[in-house]
Nucleic acid binder design. Structure first.
Length: 915
DNA sequence: TCATCCCGCCACACA
DNA sequence: TGTGTGGCGGGATGA
């Protein structure tokens, strides 16, 4: 392979650098840390401490396993014949019962992750038994697969790069060690380096707090400043110059040069004063942390951004005043490898090689941010560090969205930035993350999105910011009404602050949101671009998106048509000041279609950390259609099963939320992809007599006492009006909804298009709040309700008790939120549907949940995450459709750790049978 | 042969 | 004395 190397001279004199062409791309270096899909990992050796079927070990005789020449001991009785060390241990174990016990204990602690390996091993052993040594050798786990870099990647994949400020992620070293299948010792190596960059901080024994990359720029800036103060640049130049002369160095040279003896005390101390454990601060053995910081400093002050391990090691050794013997040097280099692996996983550096008279030397190049002044470049840099962890296609989607959005902001040359990002990504074909990152990249995308969003916000400070701010009112604030938190609200959609506001929602690819993301409250894919793309999607929303929910870690979002004001509804569903024209609609629809195939941008920025994120309808929206025709369809074809309508009834938001002001949210409707979409709008005052096809919600800013919950109430609408014609698909009636606060975990809910439908008033606590009807045509095929993982706590006292008579009927299942039910079984007559933790209810599942036969309850199953209980108080099903009503109430959930309480929302929908 | 770095022993700090 | 941490370097692995 072709290798380009730098020379030390190049490093010393950046002006003469041949970086442009001389730096080894790191392909080779990166190989060491290439992420290997575990599913494809072929362990070559059994994990230590792993129980081994001795009966199968007979095959591993010294002859067959030349790697471990063992004598005297019968291989068949050895559990770890793979290495000389293992054999030695075996010998010792045989001689010492204590040691044996110890090893036994370790076995019990065998990493979970290696279960795969164990399983594989088992299989492989069988294979080997029938196969050859070569086969065995092939399947032995490569040390690369156990590298610290890969381990670090796995570690990082567990946590969001940019966690919400509200979420406190605690890292249990034991847990992580077990989860990742390594000894805790390895985790220490990782967290020590991460701690040096303040990505984590020690909070207690065996506990670390995850901070993410939020403060990374700040940290790097500090390190850079410190590095400059330490004159590292001079030291490097000095050492590198000496390298050219001789490979040795003399202790004391640094002193002669006037360099400080040690900057240990000057290094950034990220110890959390609030945290009890400070022992680590006093220990001399923080060297890995300190070394890491110094190592980073070297890069930050280096003009070439390339540091050889030799130079770094020498500088570090000299600073520590260690005796400059070769042993120390080797040790330092080893440690630097450890650090470099972690930094590489963080995409801050990459390995390169430099050549000099003595040959090729390993070095690392800084690829992290170099400008911490919050410039566009920062975005690029940060993005570059993130993008490698993204799938290419996802990146492309992000970029597309970013361009759309960024193009609108003159202060931020986003297109250029995105192009640079693209170049960066392209220039790193060896990125270990590119193809394999799996669950990690969506997190990174979210991070990127956050960065983008932040940049956009910072750069424009325009209406977007203003609207954004409004979109995220303080929890419990009774300030002026705000649109749904986290939503990007275009000013033109907010023309009527007190009236209706439209929430833009981008199409989102649900698959782009691994559960992990949700679990961590991380923004989903293309959030970055998504955020930027929100505006561009607004038209689309007007076009046909009635109501869309995008799975979001912290937000349940609903969007629909913009309603410029309490304007009377003519049934056209078109705002008076924004009469959508067929052409526009069509165009919008066309624009949206591609969107549907792209991850919807979601916004998550520091400004909105506490803000819920826009949810996107995973289902591809129907084609945009003429409103008029839509209306016609609504009336004329309402009976068609495919027609989906959403209807909101008049509601007294104030009553429901107390003093909270309310904003009306309208949702347009979209029908079956094959059919035109009907759009209607209504105002809460006069909707009662209008056609029920228009969905309208009242957004009530979370009033005090609701813990930040935002209440979304159906707009005013006359229950009698909009009655679905006979034969029309019965809609789901949703009297009210409580939006989770920003701190809420993922709460993806997807509603399908609905058909107008007369529903009795619901929510006694919310008098006047009419139900929103969701027509659920053939629940079987279309996604109607998507429940994502979230923690649900039994709201002993629902703040929004349903007053719907239906709910009080014997058949009503009550509002009991967490009604256990048979897993995966839809039982007619059962009260509701419960989505268990970690399970994103798929449309099909929901359909099953709301199976024909009336009220039903189903346990959708799902791992690990507390469940979201969605109890359909009543489910009515006709041959064509199932109708259900759900009341919603907020609940408070205490996190597993007991430390941080996360508000959870439990959606309780009351359902009303269709007459 | 050399670059890498896994692995785990063992010392130190605390509780 | 037990446990959490992490320094340290032997030696395995891959190029």
């Amino acid at each position: 392979m072709e290798v380009n190397c730098l020379t030390l001279k190049d490093l010393i004199n950046p002006r003469q650098s041949r970086l442009d062409f001389a730096i080894e791309d790191g392909d080779n270096a990166q190989k060491e840390n290439i992420f290997v899909d575990r599913s494809r990992m072929a362990p070559k050796t059994p994990i230590k401490n792993e129980p081994i079927d001795l009966s199968k070990q007979k095959i591993f005789t010294p002859e067959r396993n030349p790697i471990t020449p063992v004598k005297l001991v019968d291989q068949r009785q050895q559990t770890e014949p793979w290495t000389p060390t293992a054999n030695l241990k075996m010998l010792i174990s045989a001689a010492s019962p204590d040691i044996r016990d110890r090893e036994k204990k370790k076995g019990l602690f065998r990493p979970i992750e290696n279960k795969d390996d164990a399983f594989t091993d088992s299989l492989q052993l069988d294979v080997v038994g029938d196969g050859s040594v070569d086969e065995f050798e092939k399947q032995r786990p490569s040390r690369k697969q156990k590298s610290l870099g890969l381990l670090c990647q796995k570690f990082l994949a567990r946590y969001p790069s940019y966690p919400l400020s509200s979420e406190k992620t605690t890292i249990s070293l034991d847990e992580v060690a077990v989860s990742l299948g390594v000894e805790r010792r390895r985790i220490y190596d990782i967290v020590n380096v991460l701690e040096s960059l303040h990505l984590v901080s020690r909070v207690a024994k065996n506990q670390y707090g995850w901070h993410g990359r939020h403060s990374l720029p700040k940290t790097l800036r500090s390190l850079q400043r410190l590095g400059e103060e330490q004159k590292y640049e001079e030291q490097m130049a000095h050492l590198q110059q000496k390298e050219l002369e001789l490979m040795d160095y003399k202790l004391g040279e640094r002193k002669k040069d006037g360099y400080p003896d040690s900057q240990d005390q000057q290094l950034l101390d990220f110890s959390e004063p609030d945290y009890p454990s400070s022992s680590a601060n006093s220990r001399k053995d923080k060297s890995l942390r300190i070394m890491s910081q110094k190592f980073v400093m070297l890069f930050l002050v280096s003009k070439t951004k390339i540091i050889t391990l030799d130079v770094a090691a020498k500088i570090l050794i000299e600073e520590s005043q260690d005796t400059p013997d070769h042993s120390k040097f080797k040790t330092k280099v080893r440690r630097l490898y450890d650090i470099a692996n972690v930094l590489t996983s963080l995409a801050l550096i990459k390995k390169v090689h430099v050549t000099e008279e003595r040959g090729r030397k390993p070095a690392f190049k800084w690829i992290g941010p170099v400008d911490f002044s919050s410039s566009d470049e920062e975005l690029v840099d940060v993005s570059a560090s993130v993008l490698p962890e993204l799938k290419r296609e996802t990146y492309g989607q992000i970029q597309v969205c970013a361009k759309q959005r960024l193009a609108r902001h003159g202060s931020f040359n986003t297109v250029q930035a995105s192009e640079r990002i693209q170049r960066k990504v392209n220039s790193e074909p060896s990125s270990p993350y590119r193809e394999e990152q799996g669950s990690g990249y969506s997190l990174e995308i979210g991070s990127l999105a956050a960065v983008y969003q932040q940049k956009i916000e910072d750069g424009s400070q325009g209406k977007a910011v203003a609207t954004s701010k409004r979109a995220m009112p303080p929890s419990g604030s009774l300030d002026p009404p705000a649109p749904l938190p986290g939503l990007s609200v275009d000013s033109e959609y907010c023309a009527h602050p007190l009236a209706h506001q439209v929430f833009s929602v981008a199409q989102l690819d649900l698959q782009a949101f691994p559960t992990q993301n949700s679990l961590h409250g991380q923004v989903g894919v293309s959030a970055a671009s998504a955020a930027s793309d929100v505006e561009s999607l607004k038209p689309a929303l007007l076009a046909s998106q009635p109501l869309v929910y995008v799975p979001s870690p912290s937000l349940l979002m609903l969007y629909g048509r913009l309603q410029e004001g309490p304007a009377p509804t003519s049934g056209s569903g078109v705002p008076a000041d924004r009469p959508p024209t067929p052409s526009v609609q069509k165009r919008l629809g066309e624009e949206r279609k591609p969107q549907a195939e792209e991850p919807a941008p979601k916004r998550q920025s520091r400004d909105y950390e506490d803000s819920p994120l826009a949810l996107v309808m995973p289902k591809k929206p129907s084609e945009a259609t003429d409103l008029t025709s839509a209306k016609t369809l609504s009336n004329g074809r309402s009976g068609a099963p495919e027609d989906i309508h959403m209807e909101a009834q008049a509601s007294a938001a104030e009553e429901a939320s107390g003093k909270a002001t309310a904003n009306c949210l309208t949702s347009s409707e979209w029908g079956n992809p094959s059919r035109d979409t009907e759009m209607e709008k209504s105002s809460k005052e006069n909707e009662s007599t209008k056609e029920p096809s228009l969905l309208q919600y009242l957004y009530v800013q979370s009033p005090a006492g609701l813990n930040g919950f935002n209440v979304l109430l159906p707009g005013s609408r006359n229950p009698q009006a909009g009655g679905a014609p006979s034969g029309q698909l019965p809609p789901l009636g949703i009297p009210c909804m409580v939006l989770p606060s920003p701190t809420l975990g993922p709460f993806p809910v997807l509603y399908s298009p609905t058909v107008p439908r007369p529903v009795s008033s619901a929510a006694g606590a919310l008098p006047g709040a009419g139900p929103v009807h969701f027509g659920v045509p053939s629940l079987g095929s279309t996604a109607h309700l998507l429940i994502g993982p979230t923690n649900v706590v039994n709201p002993k006292s629902s703040t929004l008790p349903s007053a719907d008579p239906q709910l009080q009927r014997p058949r009503s299942l009550g509002l009991s939120p967490e009604v256990p039910g048979p897993h995966g079984i839809v039982q007619p007559g059962s009260p509701g549907c419960t989505a268990h933790p970690g399970s994103a209810v798929k449309p099909q599942q929901v359909s099953r949940a709301l199976s024909p036969g009336g009220p039903s309850f189903c346990d959708l199953g799902g791992p690990r995450v507390p469940s979201v209980a969605v109890n359909a108080v009543a489910v009515e099903q006709t041959p064509e459709v199932t109708v259900a009503r759900f009341p919603v109430c907020p609940v408070k959930h205490e996190g597993p750790s007991g430390g941080c309480c996360a508000l959870e929302t439990k959606l309780l929908f009351s359902c009303q049978s269709v007459p």
